[in-house]
Design a protein around this nucleic acid. Structure first.
Length: 270
DNA sequence: AGGCGTACCTGAGGGC
DNA sequence: TGCCCTCAGGTACGCC
């Protein structure tokens, strides 16, 4: 479910809700989600949330101890903030944090792919995570040098979190459509104008999706349980057989690297 | 190195 | 109704 815009929306909502709160107790209902459940719960208890941020598709809660609670939502994970102890338990809650003031944070996940890790201050847990596409470090030159020589399909490249962090299936499809690039084109074979268009398209689609609080195709909700809005303005993702917004020809669905891929055969020819 | 298949899980939706 | 099949926003792992 969640890609960069959804994770960013969750992190911003959580920052408003939990920064400054002290974690009173932690209940782990699914130990596999956190690793060593007893140690995880014991180390979190008594710590205070100092900041909430995002790195790639990870939500990062930095604690007063300088340890970090690093969360990956995978496909169906949710971080739901609940004010007050009277709130009903979020379905499929795998981990529950209770704060000193009675508020709670539920990590819920139907499919149980999502993970939480508590990492020590000096631990370089993000060493393999690539560039942040909305930061200054993601320049057109740097993008070009990442692409150089790569034979892998451009869509596969965009999904590789070790190169650029945060793009998933929805925004890969949408950015390639905006840049008029065929998803199977070898990454290193893009012309300079095509690279430039794609660089712009990646930044633009991610920014617009954040502005609309993410895309809810099925499960995604933010920390307050609210759906996103970007699903209403998708150009190709999930729109098999419907009109291309640019050329009105029907949108195709193919499979690239075992992932559903929606694109326009007519106007994505670069 | 990189591509491919498979595994991890559950639920929704379509076809019959 | 209900059974069976496929598919889903993601990533890790093993194998060539």
């Amino acid at each position: 479910m969640p890609e960069l815009p959804e994770v960013e929306t969750i992190a911003r909502g959580l920052a408003n809700a939990v920064v400054g709160k002290v974690i009173d107790s932690v209940t782990v209902f699914r130990p596999a989600v956190v690793g060593e459940a007893d140690r995880f719960a014991a180390m979190l208890a008594g710590d205070r949330v100092a900041a909430v941020g995002r790195r790639g598709k990870f939500v990062v809660l930095t604690l007063e101890s300088r340890r970090q609670l690093v969360v990956h939502l995978r496909m169906t994970g949710r971080l739901i903030f609940q004010r007050g102890a009277t709130a009903t338990q979020e379905p499929y809650t795998n981990v529950l944090l209770r704060f000193g003031d009675g508020a709670r944070l539920a990590f819920a996940d139907v499919r149980r792919f999502g993970r939480m890790r508590l990492v020590e201050p000096e631990h370089a847990w993000a060493a393999d995570v690539g560039f942040e596409p909305l930061s200054d470090e993601f320049s057109e030159d740097r993008f070009s040098s990442l692409l150089a020589g790569r034979t892998t399909p451009i869509k596969v490249f965009l999904l590789d979190q070790r190169r650029i962090a945060g793009i998933g299936n929805i925004y890969a499809c949408e950015a390639l459509w905006a840049a008029r690039i065929r998803p199977t084109r070898p990454a290193g074979a893009l012309s300079k104008p095509a690279r430039s268009r794609l660089h712009i398209a990646i930044v633009d689609v991610l920014r617009r999706a954040i502005d609309m609080r993410g895309t809810t195709v099925d499960d995604y909700v933010d920390a307050d349980g609210l759906r996103g809005g970007f699903q209403n303005v998708l150009s190709v993702y999930g729109r098999h057989g419907k009109e291309c917004p640019r050329c009105t020809r029907p949108i195709a669905r193919t499979v690239v690297a075992q992932r559903g891929t929606w694109w326009c055969r007519t106007c994505q020819r670069n």
